[in-house]
Amino acid sequence: MSQGTLSAPAAPAAAAPPRGGALKRLSRRNSTVAFLLTLPLILLILGLVVYPFLYAIYLSTLNRRMTRFIGWENFTFLLSRETFWNVVFQSVLFAVSAVLLKALIGFILAHVLHALPAKGQRKWRGMLLVPWVIPPAISTLAWWWLFDPSYSAFNWALMGIGVDPVPWLGQAGWARFSVILVNVWYGSPFFMIMYLAALKSVPDQLYEAAAIDGASGWQKLRYVTFPMMRNIISITVLFSLIVTFANFDIVRILTNGGPQDTTHVFATYAFQVGIQSGDIPLGASVSLFMFPLLAVFAIFTLRGVNRRSKEMA
């Protein structure tokens, strides 16, 4: 129901005769229309997300052969496993550090691009977007080739300057670094674009006003840019965090979780347990593990976003 009609006191006189009943009828009809408009969305989500999701929850309460209901047992079993806690640790490390780096790099790049004269911007922007446009499953293969023990082009270059070859994927520390690096490489341009869009939406007058008040560059960033970008930062970070937590291809292709399970994230571990070792319910439990935590985080973030956009409007 549009508040617009109600808050336009001058209008009704010229248009239809104002009657309470008509308005009510209109509003009822409107919600029917609104419901119909959202129906495809609702059906899509109920049919292809909510229903399979509930089914997956059900799966996670079954035993290995899927013949018996065992309740929480899969989860309590996971919590008692050393390997699983490694996976939790690595997933958090992977997602959080990758998202922070992506956000930071995206922010820097957006700023730098924004400062460029419009003519040069397009060229740079194009080059900086390349990682985001190559399908990640395949660009990860290319990275993998760069990390290959025998053929690593990185190591070739390092040897050229007299540095020992690096076991990119062979040692826990390096392997963790490598999977995060690839994720950052792939995801930063997305942040850059989102931030660039946000920056462009900050009215120039605000900066001019700040300049007149004698604000330094940092102060402008702190008091003008940040507040104006907060929503898009929250949304982008939230979106990216969720997607990064669910990441599968990068780890799967680069290390398959090795060495010694140190790079396993939820998705790859779930795959190994569920599909490769034939314990689908346990795999489903692994995948479900992060859901409650992320959901809480997401709900709070989205509430903040909604509140701020209401304030702004």
């Binding site: 997300v49 999701f53 969720i242 479900l288 992320l294």
Partner: peptide, 11 residues
């Protein structure tokens, strides 16, 4: 988006 693809594909 919170429900990962790796969970959904089995159902």
């Amino acid at each position: 988006y919170l429900v990962p693809e790796t969970l959904l594909f089995i159902p």
